[in-house]
């Protein structure tokens, strides 16, 4: 079975629905038509550009180009992690912490999946490497941002409690233990929910896409399970590392709580 190729006319028809929605918003004075149209335009332009990039990348499947693309994705994800925190760390730490953690975790799990599990030739072939890394980064980004945001916010709000625990002679890792535990939990909730609801409440997007393009459902399901496990493991490792490093950074060598290191 071959996938049915969409023409640009098909897309225009779909775009017509958005225009109708915008017109309704104008008519009912809901004032979302501007945002709606801008977002629709952005999604069109951004995805077309990415399509062109991926097409070029597939045509020149060299390790250099794939690495470059991966690097750009990582740097953007690192910025997102910082931007989503209410009180990120000051200075280089604010950006470097999330980025480094995602680099270690997402790249390691993606490499593991490509080399050990999928094992195609060459292993960096962009058709597998880029979507896999994209899904890893996207989910890890959400998890790490949630966990770090929770950790730094918690430390900020619980300053008096943490300092009391320090004053009672607890080591920093004991004094911050409750916040680390809570942050890890908060960071992992989205992916745990996604695994629990997969197939029952929602059909995961990747699997749906594969089925739409003609892959037999059982093959699509196997890929989806693989991806889910990789994402969960990658997000979990990233969160553990991020909260450990973040927790350390909240204290100095004399185990003092240093909220002045947060913005």
């Amino acid at each position: 079975m071959n996938p049915i190729v969409l023409s640009y006319t098909d897309l225009l028809i779909a775009a017509g629905l958005i225009v109708v929605l915008a017109a309704l918003s104008l008519l009912l004075r809901l004032r979302v038509e501007g945002q709606l149209l801008i977002a629709a335009a952005r999604t069109t332009v951004q995805l077309l550009l990415v399509g062109l990039v991926l097409q070029a990348l597939f045509a020149h499947a060299s390790l250099t180009w794939v690495s470059l693309m991966a690097l750009v994705m990582l740097l953007i994800a690192g910025y997102e992690v910082m931007a989503r925190q209410k009180r990120p760390f000051k200075g280089a730490w604010g950006y470097a912490l999330g980025t480094a953690v995602m680099f270690i975790s997402s790249f390691a799990t993606s490499l593991f999946a490509l080399l050990v599990i999928i094992g195609n030739e060459p292993w960096y072939y962009p058709q597998y490497a880029i979507p896999l890394l994209g899904m890893m980064l996207g989910n890890t980004m959400t998890g790490v941002a949630l966990a770090l945001d929770r950790l730094t916010n918690f430390a900020w709000q619980q300053q008096a409690v943490i300092e009391t625990r320090l004053a009672l002679g607890q080591e920093w890792r004991v004094a911050i233990r409750d916040s680390v535990r809570e942050s890890v939990r908060v960071g992992l909730i989205p992916i745990i929910n996604a695994m629990a609801a997969a197939g029952v409440v929602s059909l995961p997007g990747m699997m749906t896409g594969q089925i739409l393009s003609g892959t037999p459902p059982m093959e699509a399901v196997k890929y989806q399970i693989l991806i889910m496990f990789m994402i969960t493991a990658g997000t979990g490792f990233a969160i553990l590392l991020a909260t450990w490093l973040g927790g350390r950074r909240l204290f100095d060598a004399r185990q003092r709580l240093r909220l002045d290191r947060l913005k």
Binding site: A160, V161, E163, A167, G169, R254
Partner: peptide, 22 residues
């Protein structure tokens, strides 16, 4: 400065003005 901070604080016990509980 010559001993780990948590051991120092066990020896020199501080009672903050407002009590805190976790």
């Amino acid at each position: 400065a010559g001993m780990p901070a948590h051991l120092w604080r066990r020896r020199v016990g501080l009672l903050p003005a407002e009590s805190q509980w976790w």
